[in-house]
Design a protein around this nucleic acid. Structure first.
Length: 485
RNA sequence: GCCCCCAUCGUCUAGUGGUUUAGGAUACCAGGUUCUCAUCCUGGCGACAGGGGUUCGAAUCCCCUUGGGGGUGCCA
């Protein structure tokens, strides 16, 4: 049997979507598993929704995820170019051939006319099918239509026969000939539609295994019909169940983060995201659910792809991420942390590896890199730059007739004389606890609020060590002054 | 409207006719650890959509109903 060749063919209209990432991942996994080829092609035939920056964004996030392609955009290969906008002549050639063979024909309907026909069909409770003319327009008709400013498109003369798709996930799906109609393959602007470009490219590029979202399943008949008319060999098909949001609707921006980049920016690890989306619509069976990319390649199989749609539960992703972080080696974490910092504007200096490693260590148990920023950013701000959370001040410092403030005032003197290292600070604070026979919280919290303005920060000794003596004292001073005012 | 697809805890899923009082994870609830948050530990709650068949036996096979999703574009 031929070497398997899969592809991911995104349309550059925005960021890489979770659903797209899952499709890319499965295609990648299958290709690797079967020692085949994974190809990346850009399908940019819609010039109205085209966003040139999206190409780079999609490529960058795919690489971040660790999904690598063997052929295609940027890496090259024998079947380029890998951008449909650079292949326009090829599509024209195929369209012309179809027209010459009487397998496609010109049409001049305006969008308004088509809408009217559809409205009529709806009113008569039947589905709309484009009425094929008894005689196809001649080249003279086309000239005339152009002169009159009418739109000129090319429609495929769909052969009248039922089409059965042998889908490797959903089984045999037969589409009756009487729901198929003559769809457009070349638009008024001279660009091909998705169906035409997609089929031509898959054929020319030797793609023999098509795995994509289920939304295409009920349209696959178009590709089957076109492919046969064009004479390309039959590929294998596998459609993937859709990923829905928690309300059961198609994943969309309105209902939360669905872009891979959003999770990258929020401080997720790509390995966690990969592991999680791999399990959306697929399972290796059994109870194991933590997988590295290499393990996914090892376990992946088409037979174990589900049919039912999956809901994207970001809570579970968070749990996966937390676990992935806990297991990741320090240097891996450091690398990811720096990527995260480069993407975000934070006061944390991104160029001090030792400091970053220290932050990672003392924040053990964090869920995303954002957690670290939330806890630690204030430590890197100017002493008079951060805000005091008044609720925290009230609860920890002002309550009980300002008990917290009193402790703080006492601490100010002791800290001023303390040698600044973990052991001495610990001795000082624990000593004070014993002296007053109170728990750590009674001492640590007032300090924490005084030096960070919040009730949450790294362990108190770490907090003080990062700040250093000078800043600690300056902040306590500021806090006390605020009180006396 | 018409066409197609799907159906196990809230969610991701295991389960492919008997080994199942339906397992794991997550979420949630209750405890515990802890200087805060997070982590972590222990326990608990929680599902085979409904109805017919087939079979000695059905979550597993068939049919219907219901529910959900997708398609029906000069978008992919």
């Amino acid at each position: 049997m031929d070497k398997i060749k899969t592809r991911f063919a995104p349309s550059p209209t925005g960021w890489l979507h979770i659903g797209g990432a899952r499709t890319a991942l499965f295609n990648f996994l299958l290709a690797r598993k079967m020692r085949g080829i994974f190809l990346l092609r850009i399908e940019d035939t819609d010039r109205t929704r085209h966003d040139e920056s999206a190409v780079g964004k999609i490529i960058d996030d795919l690489r971040w995820l660790g999904i690598q392609w063997d052929e295609g955009i940027e890496v090259g290969g024998p079947n380029g170019p890998y951008r449909q906008s650079e292949r326009l002549e090829i599509y024209r050639e195929y369209v012309n051939r179809l027209i010459q063979d009487g397998l496609a024909y010109y049409a001049f309907d305006t969008p308004e006319e088509l809408e009217q026909m559809r409205a009529r069909a709806r009113a008569e409770k039947r589905d709309f099918r484009y009425p094929r003319p008894s005689e196809f327009p001649t080249p003279e008709d086309v000239k005339k239509a152009r002169a009159e400013g009418k739109p000129v498109v090319v429609r495929f003369k769909t052969p009248q026969r039922d089409v059965t798709i042998h889908d490797e996930v959903f089984g045999e799906v037969t589409v009756s000939s009487n729901v198929q109609d003559d769809f457009i393959i070349l638009k008024d602007d001279g660009w091909p539609t998705y169906h035409l470009a997609n089929v031509v490219d898959d054929g020319l590029m030797g793609v023999n295994f098509i795995m994509r979202g289920q939304e295409f399943l009920s349209q696959t008949w178009r590709h089957v019909q076109l492919r046969e008319a064009l004479g390309f060999p039959e590929p294998r098909y596998a459609h993937l169940p859709l990923i829905m949001d928690m309300s059961g609707k198609k994943l969309s921006k309105r209902t939360g983060a669905v872009e891979v980049h959003a999770f990258r920016t929020a401080g997720y690890l790509p390995e966690a995201l990969i592991n999680f989306i791999a399990l959306l619509g697929w399972t290796p069976g059994g109870d194991k659910e933590k997988f590295t990319l290499d393990e996914l390649i090892e376990y992946f199989s088409i037979e174990r792809i589900n049919k039912a749609n999956a809901k994207f539960d970001s809570d579970k992703l968070l749990a996966f991420n937390t676990a992935a972080i806990a297991e990741a080696p320090e240097d891996r974490l450091l690398e990811a942390f720096k990527d995260f910092l480069s993407l975000n504007d934070t006061p944390i200096p991104a160029d001090d590896d030792e400091l970053l490693k220290y932050l990672l260590r003392i924040n053990k148990g964090f869920r995303t890199f954002t957690d670290i920023v939330n806890k630690c950013a204030v430590l890197f701000m100017k002493d008079d730059e951060f805000e005091y959370d008044q609720k925290a001040v009230k609860k920890v410092l002002a309550a009980n007739d300002g008990a917290g403030f009193s402790i703080l005032a006492e601490l100010r003197e002791k800290l001023a004389q303390c040698e600044w290292n973990q052991q001495e600070l610990q001795r000082l604070i624990e000593g004070m606890c014993e002296e007053k026979s109170v728990g750590m919280g009674k001492i640590a919290q007032p300090i924490r609020v005084a030096v960070t303005g919040k009730t949450v920060s790294p362990a108190i000794y770490d907090t003080l060590m990062i700040l250093g003596k000078e800043k600690t004292l300056a902040r306590i001073e500021r806090c006390l002054k605020m009180h006396s005012r």
